[in-house]
Simulated assay, not measured.
Amino acid sequence: MRTSLRLNNDLSPAEFCALAEAAEAAGFDQLWVSDDLMLHSATVLLTAAATRTSRIALGCGIFNPYTVHPAELAMTAASLHELSGGRFRLGLAAGAKQFLEWVGIEQRRPLAVTRDAVTAVRALLRHELVDLPGWTDQARLRTAVADVPIYLGAMSPKMLELAGEVADGALPLLYPPEHFPTAKAHIETGLARAGRNPADFDLPACVWLSLDRDRARAEAALADKIAYYGSAFSPYLLERAGLTRADFAEIDAAGAAGDHDRARSLVDARMLRLGIAGDVEDVLLRCRWLVDRGATHLSFGPPLGPDPRAAVELLGAEVLPALGSGEPG
């Protein structure tokens, strides 16, 4: 069983590095960080973590080709690959439409733009010519060839199938975790279409986790995260949990008014099922459900718990051993 930890880029470099060290000590195979707009730079966080760790694989989940050009994505990937001693993984996706609109960017043709970004970045990293309109033969990296695995952050059926066609792995955010078999089937469709071996593809079951020995504290931490992000989820994923964006209207209004306590209190049991919250036994129960349905890589994302460092240590001490983790990342 392969395991990974996913963190948000709302952490300071010092906080992120502390958790990176804790994740490596806990036995995680991979550590991923988001690159959401208007927070800390994922590139800076990963650079710092690369100098503070020695074994754990480090990835960005995700960069998007709308705010960062594929040429710069390739430059960043090659540089982090070199700095980390080959531990870097590049996560790409179209990004969140809502966040791109903050800076006046329209998310046009997300599937085609993402496919072209993978094509360009992979060619550049291999010192091959980019076969896309407008690129010249001067568009080549002057750094060493870098064998960087590319993962797609995919949630929609078509993007999941694209991941199976062109990527080395995927980062399908599972809201709820029980969506895993459906996501896996779409990726397998893409793999079959491209004639690829599923054994060569890394498919983490990416879940939101909030872990604490006190179940109520764990649920409160997850409720805070759901109150902030819930209405930004795609209708497709919300439907999987029996929800719609309209269910979050009161929560959004409370958050916009600065009443975060009320927003948290409005998160109901159905919404909490979007992630996994509770004590060790609660977490193991739902993780084992995923393993029974073919998950060979479990990826735990924020909030992790009211005390993220304690949650990481608890995962390493009691959850990962029970799940039989240990495959290299």
Results as ranks from 00 to 15, higher is better:
Arg2His: 07
Asn9Leu: 06
Asp10Thr: 11
Glu15Lys: 08
Phe16Glu: 02
Leu19Arg: 07
Ala20Cys: 03
Phe28Val: 02
Phe28Ile: 08
Leu31Gly: 08
Trp32Pro: 03
Asp35Ile: 03
Asp36Val: 10
Leu37Met: 14
Val44Asn: 06
Leu45Ser: 05
Ala48Thr: 10
Ala50Cys: 04
Thr51Ala: 15
Leu58Ile: 02
Gly59Arg: 00
Cys60Gly: 12
Ala74Ile: 12
Leu80Phe: 01
Leu80Gly: 00
Phe88Cys: 01
Arg89Trp: 12
Gly95Asn: 09
Gly95Trp: 04
Phe99Thr: 11
Trp102Asp: 02
Ala112Met: 13
Thr119Arg: 08
Leu124Ala: 08
Leu124Trp: 12
Arg126Tyr: 09
His127Phe: 07
Leu129Pro: 06
Gly134Asp: 11
Gln138Thr: 14
Arg140Ala: 15
Thr143Ile: 15
Thr143Val: 15
Tyr151Glu: 05
Leu152Ser: 12
Met155Ser: 13
Ser156Pro: 00
Ala163Met: 01
Ala163Gln: 12
Glu165His: 03
Ala167Phe: 01
Leu174Ile: 09
Glu178Lys: 07
Pro181Ala: 01
His186Gly: 08
Gly195Pro: 09
Pro198Phe: 07
Phe201Leu: 04
Asp202Val: 04
Leu203Tyr: 04
Leu203Phe: 02
Leu209Arg: 07
Arg213Ser: 10
Arg215Cys: 05
Glu219Tyr: 06
Ala220Pro: 05
Asp224Gly: 06
Ala227Thr: 13
Tyr228Asp: 08
Tyr228Pro: 01
Pro235Leu: 13
Tyr236Gln: 07
Arg240Tyr: 05
Ala241Cys: 09
Leu243His: 00
Glu250Ala: 15
Ile251Gln: 10
Asp252Arg: 15
Ala253Asp: 13
Ala253Asn: 14
Gly255Val: 00
His260Asp: 13
His260Gln: 14
Ser265Pro: 05
Val267Gln: 05
Arg270Ser: 12
Leu272Lys: 07
Arg273Tyr: 09
Leu274Asn: 10
Leu274Tyr: 09
Leu284Met: 08
Leu285Ser: 14
Arg286Leu: 00
Arg286Ser: 05
Val291His: 09
Asp292Val: 10
Thr296Trp: 01
His297Gln: 03
Asp307Trp: 06
Arg309Gly: 05
Arg309Glu: 12
Ala311Asn: 03
Gly316Cys: 07
Val319Lys: 13
Gly324Cys: 08
Gly326Gln: 10
